[in-house]
Design a protein around this nucleic acid. Structure first.
Lengths: 140, 140
DNA sequence: CAAATATGTTGGCCATATGCCAAACATATG
DNA sequence: CATATGTTTGGCATATGGCCAACATATTTG
């Protein structure tokens, strides 16, 4: 179960999962396309890919929802985002800058590194862009 | 001249430029393919792309060399790598870990962010993986 | 110096990730 | 139930990165 590296998903797919997590419940593919600013057909296709990984469940014409595995994974993704943004904000980047910057590269930062950063920062509870839940963050 | 965002090049091309910078002078495409562990034909092709951007000059069957522009840009790339690695090393990552981690995502970190991080760290002269030259690092 | 060997390049082809458009299809509403 | 709206499918396109086999160029050596 803890064999996740954090590098499983491509940048866009990370966005999808984070959005599904924040939205919660059954989400329409159109909501996703609106949010991520892509064509509805694009979100449908990408959701198809994600469904293939078992992270989401797609009920055609109804919507998408995170599976149990997907939920845990998405939680890690959101925490990673928040931890990295918080780190950057310590170097003079504004909340918005940090958040935007992180969004660009977060998909390439390993869970191992995030865990160390998190530990080093003393497991903060809040970041510049949201709360942090210390579940998937390994050792203390 | 200072309109670089730091996001101009794809990950692999960043690796190529950093290698050319470190090696210096005329570099054989085969050296590149050995170093980056790709087929020689792959390095030749990628070098062709880079030549199209004006960052390198390719003399067929002879080698590749950074242009003046390429040299300055590569210096930024190396500095970015070093600054980011140094930052990560402050969070409990070993030199090797920091360096490896940085290599994965560095191409997606903007010059604007790097400049702020650099300033915030007080313009350090050395990192965990090499010296830092404060030329392309903007304001103090 | 020419033949043999080593090195480098080209062309063809493949895979992944993303994306759009138009057409088909399903669902919801009046 | 007919039409409007929402969703999916299929076709196609781009960018990045990669391999192999065939060809071109250099270098080495007899």
């Amino acid at each position: 179960m803890q064999d996740i590296t954090g590098l499983e998903l491509s940048p866009k797919k990370v966005e999808y999962l984070k959005f599904l997590f924040k939205k919660g419940g059954l989400v329409r593919t159109t909501d996703i396309s609106t949010q991520l600013q892509v064509d509805p057909s694009t979100s449908t296709k990408t959701i198809g890919d994600l469904a293939g990984t078992g992270l989401v469940e797609h009920i055609p014409y109804r919507g998408v929802r995170l599976t149990e595995t997907g939920l845990k994974y998405a939680e890690f993704l959101v925490n990673r985002h928040n931890i990295l943004s918080l780190m950057l904000s310590h170097y003079g980047l504004s909340a918005e800058e940090a958040c935007k910057e992180t969004s660009r590269f977060e998909s390439l930062v390993s869970k191992a590194a995030v865990d160390k950063i998190c530990t080093s920062m003393g497991h903060p509870m809040t970041s510049v862009c949201g709360k942090i839940r210390h579940v998937s963050c390994g050792v203390p």
